[in-house]
């Protein structure tokens, strides 16, 4: 393996908060696109029922890392993933793991809101439908309503559930997509820069939502905004050039970064 030729990147770990239960654990996680190294031997333990923020300059591999967790990298022909990543101790990269099942357990929200060309109702009902989670129409209605309510969208769309999802505003679309993700009741929700296409008011609503969701789900979010990371996350991971540089409780990372690169990045010296 090519990455064996240079020393493993060293990571600064802050002590984990007391009583943290590890939900997701990565060991030597490496991703290459064709020949190019995008993620270099990442080693990390992330808690359940908390928000973990991934920060770092563009192209440092945050999205790549996120996509390892629900094996979205499978859809890219050139991507090669090695190393281990476990959810609740279960190996994700194992051949016996069906990505379909995995993705039902790990939801994902993208940078650009991408509602399907269907009605609002059908967007939310999509996951339960394909996975067969609802026994009947009533149950499905209930799931749609609770999901939309949890996503804080129910009041706004209750009377137009059958209009196309694309007719909503950008912020509403993003909340619709979050509702779609939580409709299958996943264990983990991945969010890749969920607010970067939204205005400040919509961003504030999503942040509120993230804070509420924390109680039931493990959330991992990628963000370019230091302030957002500081506001919503409990843990923060700083990536740089494909390597995990520093990881620990958000407060410590922002107040007392131990690596010079982390310091430079959060004080805005580069990135």
């Amino acid at each position: 393996m090519a990455h064996d030729t240079h020393p493993a990147p060293s990571t600064v770990y802050h002590p984990a908060p007391p009583g943290m239960d590890t939900k997701i654990a990565a060991r030597d996680l490496t991703v290459r696109y064709g020949g190019a190294l995008a993620l270099d031997r990442v080693h990390i333990d992330m808690p359940g029922r908390a928000v973990t923020a991934c920060i770092g300059p563009s192209g440092c591999g945050k999205s790549t890392f996120l996509r390892c967790i629900n094996r979205m990298n499978d859809t890219i022909d050139t991507a090669r993933v090695t190393g281990s990543i476990r959810i609740d101790g279960e190996e994700v990269n194992d051949r016996s793991i069906d990505p379909v099942l995995l993705r039902a357990r790990v939801g994902m929200v993208f940078q650009k809101p991408n509602p399907f060309p269907k009605s609002i109702y059908e967007n939310v009902a999509y996951g339960p439908r394909i996975h067969g989670l609802a026994a009947g129409k009533d149950e499905l209605d209930a799931i749609v309503e609770t999901s939309l309510t949890k996503a804080g969208l129910w009041k706004e769309v209750a009377d137009r559930l059958h209009q196309p999802g694309t007719s909503l505003s950008g912020g509403q679309q993003q909340r619709l997509v979050i509702a779609r993700a939580i409709a299958v009741n996943p264990e983990v929700i991945l969010m890749d820069e969920p607010c970067s296409a939204l205005d400040p008011i919509a961003t504030a609503r999503i942040e509120e939502l993230i804070d509420e969701l924390r109680e039931n789900y493990a959330l991992i979010i990628v963000t370019h905004s230091m302030a957002q990371a500081a506001r919503v996350s409990q843990m923060t991971a700083f990536f740089h050039l494909g390597a995990l540089v520093e990881y620990g409780p958000t407060e410590e990372i922002f107040t007392n970064p131990r690596d010079q690169r982390t310091q430079d990045y959060i004080t805005g010296r580069f990135g």
Partner: peptide, 21 residues
């Protein structure tokens, strides 16, 4: 591509992503 990614992320198989989205 974001539409396809959305479907895959929901746990759709390839043919489901194609047929439904």
């Amino acid at each position: 591509q974001t539409l396809r990614d959305g479907a895959y992320a929901m746990g759709a198989t390839k043919s489901e992503a194609i047929r439904h989205v």
